[in-house]
Design a protein around this nucleic acid. Structure first.
Lengths: 369, 369
DNA sequence: AGGTTAGATGAATCCAACT
DNA sequence: GAGTTGGATTCATCTAACC
């Protein structure tokens, strides 16, 4: 659905490029309602007072680059309002956004998201398995960052690959707390001096989970604070298109070099576990039409307490109720709803068999042709 | 230090009582700069639409109480501003506050704390070991709540019992994410009908860690949204004084009865807080997310007879089967079950290596941190 | 008595396609 | 666009009933 909806405006998007400039101006130059997902890791306004030293007196490399200083919350709020407004304009109606931050800025971003009409879906905690300790012993180890996932508006039909995430998580549904290591080792990009190329490079594993969970292959993902391009790198691997915006030339250069080395994974590997909802709908009446069930044949409920008769038009008739397999099941159980496919069974060779088996046969046939 | 600072005004405080009334009015009637710590669990402003049913058709008991209803963010913000202003007035200069909330309200509370000059020390994530699942599979399991810990102002000499918390945490620094179960079982207070007495009762283990970490014996702790009195109960056990404010008579009654049964230094309560460390379960998908295995990469079976390809969501795809490492292994062997971790191998430098080696690497990392 | 199984439940912004 | 119908969807834990 999403990929089909790409119209003419999408074709004019500067896909898989890193755009130079202030992200607000650049976003305003792009066509509205053209992007499926935005991932944003804005500067944090860290308010560091003086230099921080480890117990052994070695200096900690603080996040004190010039772009990270803001005079006050007021200025920061103005900045947040501006870039979120520009970002929201770019999102398709069913698009979504992820923002990431720490306690220094995330509350202001979250409030502004709500003020602008974004609809928060989850706040997700990235629980770092190897955070920097609190050297002074004056606070708790700052061991997590917070991400907010929000759709463009209440009622948006956002993308959520529930089954794929469940598969990623050993068969149980994915929670709002993710345990992942920080970006270190070979993955951490270095400059020519061997220092880290960017102070807050995010791990690819984080973006992998974000993109697998909330985008499909072919989707367009915008990152307005591209940095050294983790979003673009993972998007490319996963067969998504990206647009990066970054105003610092050194970061653009590092990101460009990084992206040139990335290759997309096999198409087959990118196909992901699908939800049953994605499968074609089969009308119960088709089973009757095809003679898989005969009119007049009896069906038994899963618990064996009820039975009903199949009618020629694909409805059921019970003691005091006529209707669809779902309606009759719900009525008999006194339940608000009922999935008739898993509720009803028919008899073959003395064995009770769920009618869903017949639906699966039909679906298998449909897949062949 | 703290205990010495108690002046004449402190003596007039209504200690270890539950005050009746609107918390803002009551707080304004108390003497300023008289309280060491405030713990606040205000209404979350959940905006629940219709009913929600579990897959077994049972209805979820929603938090739809009148006290959680607000017309808009504007109204909620006004409420937040008012009670935080009253709370800040009551705090001693070196006092601190904890607030707890979910994504519905915590961003607004956090921003207002900052606006009023509170100095955020940490945001602490309560990771629930047994949260309610997401029944419709439309979002991530909402598995955590967020607490914000802030001093009255920048430069406040807040209380932080670093060593006590370290001891609580098996000798390593306490982190900003706490794994604790929700309040159930005998601890959960019931009314005469056997229904829960309060819809959102917090676990004592949570308050135990808060009070051990950020107060000393003899400190005065105020809870403006006292509910059924978890803050008071834990304060009493730990030899702190409390002041509770609660406007609902039924909650006050339950809390009063509860508190009468509490005795100071209840050793049992101390044991409750020893968080059970969950056995580190590693999802195969994590190896893919972290780049230890690449989507599209091939795995070989232990006997060399079968191979399968890794997909981006941590499932495998073989000749005629898709599924988890365990499912695909079992299918290929025609076995009822299979331990995929010991069955599958990957290739590095021409050598076949069991994937379990990668799991061991991750577990070693988790154990370290 | 001791172990097993079935049932209940928790701060939840929880559907989508068709007529 | 509103109303109707099909039919997809749950994890950890505690309690009570039951062998």
């Amino acid at each position: 659905m999403k990929t089909k909806s790409k119209g003419a405006e999408v074709k004019s998007l500067p896909l898989n490029q890193i755009l130079d400039g202030d992200c607000i101006e650049v976003m305003n130059s792009l066509p509205e309602s053209s992007v499926d997902l935005i991932f944003a890791d804005p500067p944090y306004n860290l308010q560091l007072r003086g230099d921080l030293h480890r117990p052994d007196n070695s200096k900690v490399d603080a996040v004190d680059d010039h772009w990270d200083q803001f005079d006050s919350f007021k200025v920061y709020d103005k900045f947040t309002r501006a870039w979120l407004t520009a970002a929201r304009r770019l999102l398709k109606p069913d698009g979504a956004i992820w923002v990431i931050g720490s306690y220094h800025n995330v509350f202001r971003m979250g409030a502004e998201l709500q003020n602008q009409g974004f609809w928060i879906l989850n706040d997700v905690v990235w629980r770092k398995s190897n955070p920097m300790p609190n050297f002074r012993g004056k606070r708790f180890t700052n061991a997590h960052e917070t991400m907010i996932w929000a759709s463009k508006a209440e009622g948006s039909k956002y993308t959520f690959n529930y089954e794929a995430l469940k598969a990623l998580n050993e068969g149980v549904q994915m929670r709002s707390d993710w345990v992942l290591p920080i970006c270190t080792g070979h993955e951490r990009l270095k400059d020519e001096n061997g220092d880290k190329a960017h102070p807050t490079q995010k791990p690819e594993s984080l973006l992998h989970r974000v993109l697998i969970g909330s985008t499909n292959p072919g989707d367009v993902i915008l990152d307005p604070f591209f940095g050294t391009g983790t979003t673009g790198a993972v998007a490319k691997m996963l067969g998504r298109d990206f647009i990066g915006i970054e105003r610092e030339e050194t970061y653009r250069e590092v990101a460009k070099k990084r992206l040139s080395k990335i290759r997309k994974f096999d198409k087959e590997a990118l196909e992901v576990t699908q939800s049953k909802r994605a499968e074609p709908r089969v009308a119960f009446g088709v089973l009757v039409e095809r003679g898989m069930l005969r009119p007049g044949e009896e069906l038994w409920s899963l618990n064996g307490r009820h039975k009903a008769k199949v009618r020629a038009d694909g409805t059921l008739i019970g003691d005091d109720i006529k209707g669809s397999i779902h309606q009759v099941g719900a009525h008999l159980e006194g339940a608000p709803s009922c999935n008739g496919w898993t509720y009803w069974q028919f008899k073959r060779d003395g064995q009770k068999v769920p009618i869903d088996l017949l639906r699966q046969q039909i679906r298998a046939e449909m897949a062949k042709h």
